[in-house]
Design a protein around this nucleic acid. Structure first.
Length: 949
RNA sequence: GGUGGCUUGGCAGAGCGGCUUAAUGCGUCUGACUUAUAAUCAGUUGUCCGGUGCUAGAACACCGGGCCGAGGGUUCGAAUCCCUCAGCCACCGCCA
C-alpha cells in the first residue's frame, strides 16, 4: 500500500550527484573549459563592455605553486569572474617573473655538479630552460585551482619584447638625468672576482686577528676639545679585519656612551669607560690605568685624529650602532668596507674609499703605502688550513707595529661569511654601482602625490595600505639598480679602456629595439661595434671599437616593476593603462607596488594603478606562518591541498576568510568549510531535483499570482542579492560566504524548503500552488548559483549545466550569464515584517512540539495540532489571524486553531492530531477530519484530487 | 632595532560608545524522520568564581559576579575611545 501511494508522489529527481567527488571530477571540467575556450567566450561576450583590468603580479618561476600563491591567484580569479558577470570586460593577462638570483643559483649548482664551465650566454640559456619548465608546471597548477586567464597572451619578463621594454623604461630614467654611478660596499668573492648575494654566503668559524690600534689626537685638537695635552693622547679602536686599516676614514663613537681619558703612564688613551678594563687586560697594562676624565661621545664629534701610518685625518663621527659589548667603544670606520660604515660615510659625506682591486690586492692609488701595494687580502683555502693570515693582514700589522700604533693584538675566533663556492672568507668591498636618484626632477613628490590621489578615492584597500607605501616611498634611499649577475636584463652601458662609463637614453632605446628582435643574448654575444651599428652616438662618445659592453644586470624589481609598461601600455590581451586594480600580499607595498609606482612615475608621470588591494599571509591555527611551523611537515603546495579537498573547497575556504588579515588554515577550518560546501551543494541539488517537471518558459507564474510564502522567499532573495553585491564590491568575500551560508541553512533549508516539501511532493504537477513554489525555486536557484559562481566555480558550472540541459556539461556556461538583479516586484517589506512575526511564533511552536516528540507522543510535526490563544488587541496575534489558512503549512502541523482570550501574550499549546479526532492521510501524512475511499485506499480530499487528475 | 598591521566563545565571523545578559552560521550533544538519505528537521550548547537547593559527593537546577590578548585610563555607560605591555605577521638586504 505504502509503496503504491509513494509512487503517486512527485518526489525529487535529478542527476546532479549529491557527492561532489571534486578531486576526481574537477580536472575534467578544467579540460571542458579549455576545449570550449571559456576564457575567450567570456571575453567575446563582453567585447563592447567597459574593461576592468586586474593586472597580474608575476610569480617567481622556481618551484611548485605555493598555497599562498594560489590564494593570491584565486582572489584575482574571484574578482575577475565577478566583474565579468557584472558586465565588465575582464582581460586577465597572467605574468611570470623569470629573472633573478634564486634561479641562477639553482642552475649554477647543477652546473657545478656536472663540472661544466659555461659562458654567460650558455648560463643564461640554462636559466631560461629552468624558468620555462616551471612556467609550464605552474600554469597547470593554476588551471587546476580554476584560474581562468589569457594563457596564450601571458607575459614573461624573460621574453625579448618584455626585456626591451624594461630597457626602454630604464632609458626614461637615464633621460631624466636620474641615473648616476657611485660606490657601494658589497660581499665580494676574490677568487671569482664577483659580488655575491646574501644567499651565496656561508657563515663559518674563522680565527681572525683582532687588533687594538692607537689613533693620535694632535695637540691642537686636544686643546680644542678640552682634553689634556701634557702626554700623548690616542683614541684606541678595535677591529678584526686589519687589512681595512688603510681604508680607515673615521672613528665612530656612540653619542651617549661615556668615554674616558685613561693614563697609562707614558701616554693616555681614549676608550669607552665600560671597556677600559677589557682594553687594559688585552694590552697587558700594569698597573691598572687611572681615569683622568670622562666625556660623552657626543662631545667629541668632529675631533680630527690622525691615521696611524697614512698622512690623513680620521675624524670622530657618531653612530648609534656602536656598542660596548666588545672592542673599545671606538669603531674603526672604513666606508668602502662595511654596510654600517658606508651609511655613516654617506651621513658625514666621507669618500666611499676602497683601495682594494677586483683581485683583492691593494691598489697603488698614491695613498696606500708602497710596501702594502700588491698584497692580497685573500686567505686561500691553504692559508686557512695552515692558519696563516692573509698577506695584507700581516703587512698592516707590520706597519702598525713599526708606527708604534699597535696597542695589542689577539686571536679572535668568530663566525665569518665565506664564499659558498670557493670556501674562502669574503671581503666587504665598495664597487661602482648604478643608482637612480629618486629626488631629482621632483620624482619623490610626484610619487607621494600619486599615493594621495589614489587614497582620495579609497584606492588603498585596506586603507592602511596608504601609510604603508607612503612610508616605503618616503624613506627609500637612492635605488641601487645594478647587479653583478648573469640571469637578468643587461644595463646598456659601455666602458672605455679607462673604465669610464657611457650611458645614453637614445642609445639605450636603440639597444632595446635590437634586443626586442634578437633577444638579450645579443648583448652578450655581439661586439660593441655590432650592437651600435647604425646607432648615432652622442658626440662625446668614443668610437664603438674603443668600448666594451657592461656586464651588470638590472635589479629584478625593475623587471617586474616595468610590467605595466610592457603589458598595459601596449594593451596586451585587451588590457589598458593604468590598471584598475593591483592585488598582492601586503609585503608588496615595499616590493612590486613600490617598484611599479616608481617606474611609472618616472616613465609616465603617474601611478600605474587606480587601486591596490592587499591580502595577508597564510598562517597555521596558532598564527604562526606555516613555513615556520614544525607541525606542518607536508609540502605547502597548492596541489597538496587540492589533492585532499578539491579546488572548490579550497576556493570556498579562501572566500570564507577575511583575507585582509592573516589567513589561518588547519584541518578543522577546512573541515568546516567542507561542511559548508556540502550545504551549498545540497541546496542546489534540492532545488534542481524539484524542478524536474518544471519548464520556466511555460510553467512559471507571474509574481502577482504567486503564493505569499514564495513571495516572501523572493523578497529574501532580493535582500541576499543586494547584500552580496555590496560585499563583493567591497571585496569582502567572507561576508558573501556568511550571507549565503545563512541563507541556505536558515531561510531555505530550515524554513522555506522544509515547508515546501508538502506542496511539491503531494500536489498534482500543475497545481498553481506547486507552480508558484517552483517558479520561486527557479528564480532563487538562478540567483544563488550566480552569486556563488566566483567562489565554487566548478560546482556552479556543473549545477548550471544540469539546470539548463539536464547534463553534466554544456557549452552555455554560467560564466556567460549576467549578475542577478532582483526585480522590484520581488521586494515586499510588509510581507517580510509579517513573516518575521510568524517565524517567531514558529520557533515558539517548535519548542512546544519538542517535549511531545521527546516523550514519544509524536514523531514528525505533522502528527501534531497547535492551538494559539491570544487577543485581537495584540498586533502579532492579528498577523496570525490574517494568515490563518497558511498556518498549518508554516508550522508543518496538521491543524492550527486560533482562540481568542484576554491574555496579553499569545499562548501556544500542542497535542497529537488524533486527540482532536483527526485521521492521518497515508499519502501526505497530514491528519484531516475525514478520509475518502479511492482506488488507492483511503486518502484525504486533497490527495484524492491530486490522484484523480 | 625601526615601520606597518593583527589579537572577539571549539571554528569562521558580526560588532564602529547605550538596542550586547556578544549576532549569525558551522560544529557539539540529545532526539525525530525515512517523502533532499554519506541527506533532512527539532531542541540543546561558552567559560571561570561564589552562593542556594539536594543526607554528603557527583550530576542537575536556580541566583550573583568576572571574562571580547593582559593591565590601566576616559565616560553616567566600553568589545567599541585613549595609554602601556604581551603575542603573532610583514617589510626594512645583490631573496622575490
Amino acid at each position: 500500500m505504502a509503496q503504491e501511494l509513494k509512487d503517486t508522489l512527485l518526489l525529487p529527481k535529478t542527476d546532479f550527484p549529491m557527492r561532489a567527488n571534486l578531486v576526481q571530477r574537477e580536472p575534467a571540467r578544467v579540460a571542458h573549459w579549455e576545449k570550449t575556450d571559456l576564457y575567450n567566450a567570456i571575453q567575446r561576450q563582453r567585447a563592447d563592455a567597459p574593461a576592468f583590468v586586474l593586472h597580474d603580479g608575476p610569480p617567481f618561476t622556481n618551484g611548485d605553486v605555493h598555497i599562498g600563491t594560489a590564494l593570491n591567484k584565486t582572489l584575482k580569479d574571484i574578482i575577475n569572474r565577478y566583474k565579468s558577470m557584472r558586465g565588465f570586460r575582464t582581460p586577465y593577462v597572467p605574468g611570470w617573473d623569470c629573472h633573478g638570483l634564486p634561479i641562477e643559483q639553482k642552475v649554477s649548482a647543477e652546473i657545478r655538479q656536472q663540472n661544466l664551465t659555461l659562458t654567460q650566454a650558455e648560463m643564461r640559456a640554462k636559466c631560461d630552460e629552468f624558468s620555462e619548465n616551471w612556467i609550464a608546471k605552474q600554469t597547470a597548477q593554476f588551471k587546476r585551482i580554476g584560474v581562468l586567464a589569457d594563457w596564450k597572451n601571458e607575459y614573461k619578463t624573460k621574453e625579448p619584447a618584455f626585456e626591451a621594454d624594461i630597457i626602454r623604461t630604464f632609458a626614461a630614467f637615464v633621460e631624466k638625468g636620474l641615473v648616476y654611478r657611485s660606490k657601494k660596499p658589497v660581499y665580494w668573492s676574490i677568487p671569482f672576482e664577483t659580488a655575491l648575494a646574501e644567499a651565496e654566503i656561508e657563515y663559518k668559524d674563522h680565527v681572525s686577528i683582532a687588533i687594538w690600534v692607537k689613533f693620535l689626537v694632535p695637540v691642537d685638537q686636544a686643546e680644542k676639545f678640552g682634553l689634556p695635552t701634557d702626554k700623548p693622547l690616542y683614541i684606541v679602536i678595535w677591529t678584526t679585519t686589519p687589512w681595512t686599516i688603510p681604508a680607515n676614514l673615521a672613528i665612530a663613537l656612540h653619542p651617549d656612551v661615556e668615554y674616558v681619558v685613561a693614563d697609562l703612564g707614558a701616554e693616555r688613551i681614549i676608550v669607552a669607560q665600560a671597556l677600559l678594563g677589557a682594553v687594559a687586560t688585552a694590552a697587558k697594562i700594569e698597573p691598572q690605568p687611572t681615569t683622568v676624565l670622562t666625556v660623552p661621545g657626543a662631545k667629541l664629534e668632529h675631533l680630527q685624529a690622525r691615521h696611524p701610518f697614512i698622512d690623513r685625518a680620521s675624524p670622530v663621527v657618531l653612530a648609534d650602532y656602536v656598542t660596548t659589548d666588545s672592542g673599545t667603544g671606538a669603531v674603526h670606520t672604513a666606508p668602502g668596507h662595511g654596510a654600517d660604515d658606508y651609511l655613516t660615510g654617506l651621513k658625514y659625506k666621507l669618500q666611499i674609499y676602497c683601495p682594494v682591486g677586483d683581485d683583492g690586492k691593494y691598489l697603488d692609488d698614491g695613498q696606500v703605502p708602497a710596501d702594502l701595494v700588491g698584497l692580497t687580502t685573500l686567505e686561500t683555502v691553504e692559508d686557512l688550513a695552515a692558519k696563516r693570515p692573509a698577506p695584507a693582514n700581516l703587512g698592516v700589522l707590520k706597519k702598525l707595529a713599526a708606527a708604534g700604533a699597535l696597542l695589542a693584538k689577539a686571536k679572535y675566533p668568530h663566525s665569518y661569511p665565506h664564499c659558498w663556492r670557493s670556501k674562502t672568507p669574503i671581503i666587504f668591498r665598495a664597487v661602482d654601482q648604478w643608482f637612480v636618484s629618486l629626488d631629482k626632477a621632483g620624482m619623490r613628490q610626484t610619487a607621494l602625490a600619486e599615493i594621495i590621489k589614489i587614497a582620495s578615492h579609497q584606492g588603498w584597500i585596506p586603507a592602511w595600505g596608504e601609510a604603508r607605501i607612503r612610508g616605503a616611498v618616503e624613506s627609500r634611499p637612492d635605488w641601487c639598480i645594478s647587479r653583478q649577475r648573469s640571469w637578468g636584463v643587461p644595463i646598456p652601458a659601455f666602458y672605455d679602456a679607462n673604465k669610464k662609463a657611457y650611458l645614453d637614453a637614445t642609445v639605450a632605446r636603440a639597444v632595446a629595439d635590437k634586443i626586442a628582435t634578437r633577444g638579450t643574448n645579443f648583448w652578450y654575444d655581439a661586439t660593441p661595434a655590432q650592437i651600435l651599428e647604425g646607432v648615432t652616438l652622442p658626440s662625446d662618445w668614443p668610437t664603438p671599437e674603443a668600448l666594451v659592453c657592461g656586464r651588470d644586470t638590472l635589479d629584478v624589481w625593475i623587471d617586474s616593476g616595468s610590467s605595466h609598461a610592457a603589458v598595459l601600455k601596449r594593451g596586451q590581451g585587451g588590457t589598458h593603462w593604468p590598471a584598475d586594480l593591483y592585488l598582492e600580499g601586503s609585503d608588496q607595498h615595499r616590493g612590486w607596488f613600490q617598484s611599479s609606482l616608481w617606474t611609472s612615475v618616472i616613465a609616465f608621470g603617474a601611478a600605474p594603478y587606480k587601486a591596490v588591494l592587499t591580502h595577508g599571509f597564510i598562517v597555521d591555527k596558532d598564527r604562526q606562518k606555516i613555513s615556520k611551523s614544525s607541525t606542518y611537515q607536508k609540502p605547502q603546495t597548492a596541489d597538496a591541498y587540492i589533492a585532499q579537498h578539491g579546488a572548490d573547497v579550497i576556493r570556498l575556504w579562501i572566500a570564507s576568510q577575511d583575507f585582509r588579515d592573516d589567513i589561518p588554515v588547519d584541518d578543522e577550518i577546512l573541515k568546516n568549510v567542507g561542511e559548508a560546501y556540502r550545504l551549498l551543494r545540497n541546496t542546489f541539488r534540492f532545488q534542481l531535483s524539484n524542478l524536474f517537471d518544471f519548464d520556466a518558459t511555460k510553467d512559471a507564474l507571474p509574481i502577482e499570482q504567486m503564493d505569499v510564502l514564495d513571495r516572501w522567499a523572493l523578497h529574501q532573495t532580493a535582500v541576499l542579492i543586494d547584500e552580496c553585491t555590496k560585499a563583493y564590491d567591497a571585496y569582502e568575500f567572507h561576508r558573501v560566504y556568511q550571507l549565503c551560508n545563512q541563507f541556505c541553512a536558515v531561510t531555505l533549508s530550515a524554513v522555506y524548503h522544509d515547508i515546501l516539501k508538502d506542496r511539491l511532493y503531494t500536489l498534482k504537477s500543475a497545481h498553481p500552488l506547486r507552480r508558484s513554489s517552483q517558479t520561486a525555486i527557479h528564480h532563487i536557484f538562478r540567483s544563488l548559483v550566480k552569486i556563488l559562481t566566483p567562489f565554487i566555480t566548478f560546482t556552479a558550472d556543473e549545477a548550471w549545466s544540469f539546470a539548463t540541459t539536464g547534463k553534466e556539461y554544456s557549452v552555455d556556461s554560467i560564466h556567460l550569464q549576467d549578475w542577478p538583479v532582483a526585480p522590484a516586484a520581488w521586494r515586499n517589506p510588509e510581507l517580510e515584517a509579517e513573516m518575521a512575526t510568524l517565524l517567531k511564533f514558529r520557533a515558539q511552536a517548535n519548542e512546544k512540539l519538542e517535549p511531545l516528540r521527546q516523550a514519544g507522543t509524536i514523531g514528525k510535526s505533522l502528527d501534531a495540532a497547535l492551538s494559539f490563544g491570544g487577543s485581537t488587541d495584540d498586533a502579532t496575534f492579528r498577523v496570525l489571524e490574517k494568515h490563518r489558512t497558511f498556518l498549518p503549512e508554516l508550522f508543518i502541523v496538521s491543524q492550527v486553531n486560533l482562540g481568542t482570550t484576554v491574555t496579553t501574550t499569545v499562548e501556544i499549546s500542542a497535542q497529537h492530531a488524533r486527540d482532536l479526532g483527526l485521521a492521518r492521510c497515508p499519502r501526505c501524512w497530514r491528519s484531516v477530519p475525514t478520509l475518502n475511499q479511492t482506488a488507492h485506499g483511503e486518502v484525504c480530499p486533497r490527495c484524492e484530487e491530486a490522484l484523480n487528475s
